[in-house]
């Protein structure tokens, strides 16, 4: 009645852990290219996106990846990120689509007047849905990892979304072996997470080993910041609203995660090279998303955002 599975291929001698992760991610991307009509890669310009984009280039070489990049822009990203975005699209020869939610723009939604929750919901969550509907994408790659956050630990690699982009965590499709079911009905879509099994350390190590370009903000440098109840916010442009009496000061800081600059907390650091960053990260006892203010609003907030359509 029973049978032996000889050897899971990923545990065979010879391939390093990173090589195995890379092979898995490439396999996932090719499945999407083969199974879907209109895939897209969501590009957030962060380090995970950088690795995902690099893997896409590898997966389809010598062809260019058979899908465009989509950046759902909030207009509040760091200037360094915008430069990086243009540079990467050119480097990998991919079409770059930028979506800016026109309603958010019309209402001047910003993190200062509207708070992080509203800002994020309207620019990112609603903006993403608009963009996906506008172009009719049926599959969207995202750079989320299972080690980031508790509800993400439960996400499938092919994560099914109903016609309203909703995620039903209680009713996810079973996902066995390497057999990804990409079949969907009209209006339905799939979010695909090729980096699901990577950890933050894996991402950094891969960037280091393969010289993957990243935004310089990840490395420590003297930058103008203000200290807001222990969170260091960088004053990236003239839109930053200073409290009365507040003066930006130059501190040596770096960022663990990058989002909208008024919502991304920097940490004090002298780690100016990748190995130093990795070293500091491993020695630190604080987890990655802490630097992102959006998660602290309520417990299980990420799951709620995902049900509503945010990544």
């Amino acid at each position: 009645m029973t049978i032996d599975r000889p050897i899971a291929p990923e545990t065979r001698r010879g391939l390093t852990h990173l090589q195995r992760l890379e092979a898995e991610s490439i396999h996932i991307m090719r499945e999407v290219a083969a199974q879907f009509e209109r895939p897209v890669m969501l590009y957030s310009i962060g380090k995970d996106s950088a690795v995902m984009l690099h893997l896409a280039a590898k997966a389809f070489y010598p062809s260019r990846p058979p899908f465009p990049l989509l950046h759902v822009d909030t207009t509040w990203k760091f200037q360094d990120m915008y430069e990086m975005r243009e540079r990467m699209a050119r480097r990998y020869g991919m079409d770059l689509l930028v979506h800016i939610n026109p309603e958010a723009q019309a209402h001047g939604i910003n993190p200062f007047d509207h708070g992080s929750a509203v800002h994020t919901d309207i620019w990112k969550t609603q903006g993403l849905k608009q963009a996906l509907d506008k172009y009719g994408f049926d599959a969207a790659f995202g750079g989320a990892r299972r080690d980031e956050e508790k509800s993400r630990a439960k996400e499938r690699i092919f994560s099914f979304r109903s016609a309203g982009h909703r995620w039903d965590p209680k009713n996810q499709r079973p996902e066995l072996w390497r057999l990804y079911n990409g079949r969907i009905g009209p209006g339905e879509s799939v979010r695909v997470f090729p980096l699901s099994n990577w950890t933050e350390l894996d991402i950094w190590q891969y960037i280091y080993l393969h010289d993957v370009p990243i935004v310089p903000l990840y490395l420590a440098a003297e930058r103008p910041v203000v200290d807001r109840s222990g969170t260091l916010i960088m004053v990236d442009d003239e839109r930053m609203r200073l409290h009365p009496g507040e003066q930006p000061v130059m501190r040596s800081v770096r960022f663990r995660t990058l989002g909208c600059y008024p919502l991304s907390g920097a940490i004090e650091s002298r780690a100016a090279t990748l190995p130093e960053v990795i070293q500091e990260m491993l020695l630190a006892r604080t987890s990655e998303r802490q630097g992102r203010l959006i998660d602290h609003d309520q417990a299980a907030s990420m799951e709620k955002k995902k049900q509503e359509g945010y990544f």
Partner: peptide
């Protein structure tokens, strides 16, 4: 509570979906 990630699970105190966790020691990942 570290691993029961979904709000629905925390309310019911049970684990309803597979959660993947990552750790390493000096010998293995």
């Amino acid at each position: 509570l570290l691993v029961d990630g979904l709000a629905a699970e925390r309310e019911q105190g049970i684990t309803i979906d597979v959660a993947y966790r990552f750790f390493h020691t000096e010998r293995r990942k």
